[in-house]
Nucleic acid binder design. Structure first.
Length: 581
RNA sequence: GCGCCCGUAGCUCAGCUGGAUAGAGCGUCUGCCUCCGGAGCAGAAGGCCAGAGGUUCGAAUCCUCUCGGGCGUACCA
């Protein structure tokens, strides 16, 4: 309907003297339903240029519209209002047709094909395997997965990818942390008889070292514990596992490889389980190490060098970012010979580009705000179109419990894990709370509110509406009453609350595509709330069961359409749509 | 210092590419359960959209400045 009106207006305007050829009329949905269903401001926009009063221009457009362009299938009435708005009221026939389309498409209602034939890669979570996923990762995970679903709904072929780094400093510190805990654990626990003499010796040297290194530290750690080591209890658990399997044999190891790989596999297993619990299935896990193995990192460095964008100074290798709009240059390879994370990051993005994706989406926390411009610069230098990269930055999450902020610090290991959160409030609630707010705003996650299985909790409002519809349809089916989606049946829907609900439902496909285009998944949550609200109003003002058969069957069709919309919308959000609660 | 994000009802937040009287939820107050699921509905109160300028027919929305908060600004990730 919008397309039709827009084209009609365009034709009319070309026939009006001295309207600029490139003028495009805007159509918007008025906030006040008394102002019709669509409105255009083009008379006001043209007033200055034509040097005529806007109302006069509006009258002329309306006259032309009525004479040449009015399609009664779409348009019921047209009027000029306010300072020169032209308001269009759409016909019920149009609404019924759209409602019929919803019923016909069912589980596919809302899908469109603007992305057909295109491939998108959404990279998200991407936490290094050094500890369990935290609440902050949760927001990342839900945003990324929902955005991926939205892209699928508009036709993209989507790959969900998790990029991780299992080399480098972080992993070394992790390995050293585990080793230190292993020494602690093996000194404390009783060992098998065969190892007894060694075990006793180990315990004695361990304890004397501890005494020597002891101070008034608030957190008790082994003397050998790295300064910036990982303090979480999961590290000790991994050490215990190793002690159980290998006894004290690992004490002799020169390197920490065993500790690193053990830690990584345990932690990664936990991360996968957590994601699964949240309803997220990654298509691929991309290992940074593979870039080194394939020589992609060196290749990228050489390619940048070939563009004359790299130089050496103080033993380090620098990227000339100062010539690309940054205030300073950037180190790519440290004096130690080890690359900073930026170089493999650029190599990784080159790899993504070469895999032929049309758009690359990255979900980053606010703390990464300064890092991605370097990646874009690198891609540009290497001749890639960096506008294909879309970066979605989200702000941090604050947990609220008992009205108080829950302070979190990874160093002190008093963070709340995503698993703990889901245990408290269920995955459905977790997903809804993470998606319901605009990503660029700070999110306050009120655990007490989220825990309430009551009217205070917005998730249940949506699910309740869905369950209620299912219940009604089931009850009706028991007395052999079925929804009638035919045009004659739908034409019986004329009550205010019925029309309002229809209008809300048929907006769905546009909401989905616009959320996908703008990368604003929270607007889908806002929209679904309004659908549930419109349904509940309809439910309270119109009965279904007990009405005459024709009316009942038409209203069942409407309820069915509301069910489809809620169901499809919730499925994009990764939230269940229960048939009873 | 510089860069990015944010400032809307007591609280948490919507507000689509600038539009007509700025909207929800929670909290407060008033009604509504012989009736398809009351986890609900109808209504009331509550606002100098942080502040000041500017752009224009028209600004919560765009521009500039000020104030307030978050994040970044490493040969850490």
């Amino acid at each position: 309907m919008k397309d039709y009106l827009s084209a009609a207006l365009q034709r009319i305007l070309t026939n009006i003297a001295s309207v600029p050829a490139d003028f495009v009329p805007e159509l918007s949905v008025p906030a006040n339903p008394d102002h019709g269903d669509l409105a255009t401001n083009c008379a006001m926009k043209l007033a200055r240029h034509l040097r005529r009063p806007p109302r006069g221009i509006a009258e002329e457009i309306v006259a032309a519209f009525m004479a040449e362009e009015r399609d009664p299938f779409y348009i019921d009435s047209v009027s000029v209002a306010g300072g020169g708005f032209i308001n269009f009221k759409c016909s019920n026939r149009y609404l019924y047709r759209e409602l019929g389309a919803c019923l016909e498409r069912g589980g596919d209602f809302g899908r469109s094909d603007s992305g057909r034939g295109k491939r998108a890669l959404v990279e998200f979570v991407s936490a290094n395997p050094t500890g369990p996923l935290t609440v902050g990762h949760g927001r990342n995970a839900v945003l990324g997965d929902t955005l991926a679903s939205l892209l699928e709904w508009v036709g993209y072929e989507v790959t969900r990818e998790y990029y991780f780094n299992d080399a480098g400093r972080q992993m070394r510190v992790l390995g050293a942390s585990v080793r230190s805990r292993y020494e602690e654990v093996t000194a404390e626990e009783d060992q098998p008889f065969a190892d007894l003499p060694r075990a006793i010796g180990h315990r004695q040297t361990y304890q004397s070292k501890q005494l020597a290194g002891a101070g008034n530290k608030p957190v008790i750690v082994p003397d050998s514990f790295p300064e910036d080591g990982y303090l979480g209890t999961y590290i000790t658990e991994i050490a215990r596992k190793l002690a159980k399997k290998h006894g004290i044999d690992l004490l002799d190891r020169e390197d920490n490889d065993m500790f690193e790989t053990a830690a990584q596999s345990v932690i990664f297993g936990a991360i996968r389980t957590t994601l699964e619990h949240l309803g997220i299935a990654m298509d691929s896990y991309f290992n940074e190490k593979s870039l080194y193995e394939r020589g992609a990192v060196t290749k990228t460095l050489n390619a940048l060098r070939a563009q004359n964008m790299v130089y050496e100074e103080d033993g380090a290798i620098w990227f000339k970012t100062s010539s690309l709009g940054k205030e300073s240059d950037t180190v790519l390879v440290k004096r130690t010979g080890e690359p900073t994370y930026r170089l493999p990051d650029i190599a990784y993005h080159v790899d993504k580009m070469e895999r032929g994706f049309d758009i690359l989406i990255n979900i980053f926390g606010a703390d990464h705000i300064g890092t991605y411009p370097d990646i874009l610069r690198g891609l540009e230098v290497l001749g890639f179109d960096s506008t294909r990269v879309k970066v979605m930055i989200y702000q941090f999450v604050t947990l609220i419990r008992a009205g108080q902020e829950v302070k979190m610090s990874t160093r002190k290991a008093n963070f709340v894990t995503l698993d703990e959160l889901m245990d408290e409030v269920t995955p459905d609630v977790t997903r809804y709370f993470f998606i319901m707010r605009s990503a660029q705003k700070h999110l306050e996650f009120d655990i007490d509110l989220a825990r309430e299985a009551s009217d205070k909790n917005p998730v249940f409002y949506l699910q309740y509406a869905h369950a209620r519809i299912c219940s009604i349809l089931k009850k009706a089916a028991e007395i052999n009453l079925m929804p009638d989606p035919g045009p004659a049946s739908l034409a019986l829907l004329v009550e205010e609350s019925e029309i309002a609900l229809i209008k809300e439902i048929i907006r769905f496909p546009r909401v989905v595509s616009s959320c996908a285009e703008t990368c604003e998944p929270h607007r889908l949550a806002t929209y679904l709330r309004s659908v549930a609200e419109a349904f509940t109003r309809f439910y309270h003002s119109c009965r279904i069961l007990g009405e005459k058969e024709g009316i009942a069957m038409a209203r069942m069709a409407l309820a069915q359409a509301a069910r489809i919309t809620l169901h499809n919308g919730l499925s994009i959000l990764g939230i269940s749509a229960p048939e009873r609660m």
